[in-house]
Amino acid sequence: MAYSDKVLDHYTHPRNVGQMDKGSAEVGTGLVGAPECGDVMRLQIKVNPETQVIEDAKFKTFGCGSAIASSSLATEWVKGKTVEEAMQIKNTDIVKELSLPPVKIHCSVLAEDAIRAAIGDWKKKNGVQESSAAPMVATAH
């Protein structure tokens, strides 16, 4: 199987690997996927309460190279964005950036779900209302 250079780069040098304190009010955690399906992503964001800007992001992923690359890329993309901006990230953007083949599209969907789940968790913790424009998406798809 041929991987794109960008997938290889993220796999070889994954960005923002690690974990942040789940208990912190500033941190939102999204855990999506299932071991039986062969991929689980945990994506965390740290949000500045004043500006709602995502100041840090961390991930860990169990999954194929494309899943690792999708989540690594997702952490790069959310950093510096406000939560509302981050909600606009689409799985199709990830597919395009990483040149994922059709059989790997689910990896990008999972990464989008992970972003939304992390933001959803942060909002819940901080009593922020879900905006109707960008509802939190369940992980089932």
Binding site: P14, V17, Q19, L31, P35, V40, M41, R42, K60, T61, F62, I68
Partner: peptide, 15 residues
């Protein structure tokens, strides 16, 4: 080191 599952198991979480 990249696997959330391995980390959880090491922390004693029953997957």
């Amino acid at each position: 080191e990249l696997s959330p599952l391995y980390e959880m198991v090491k922390e004693g979480i029953d997957l």
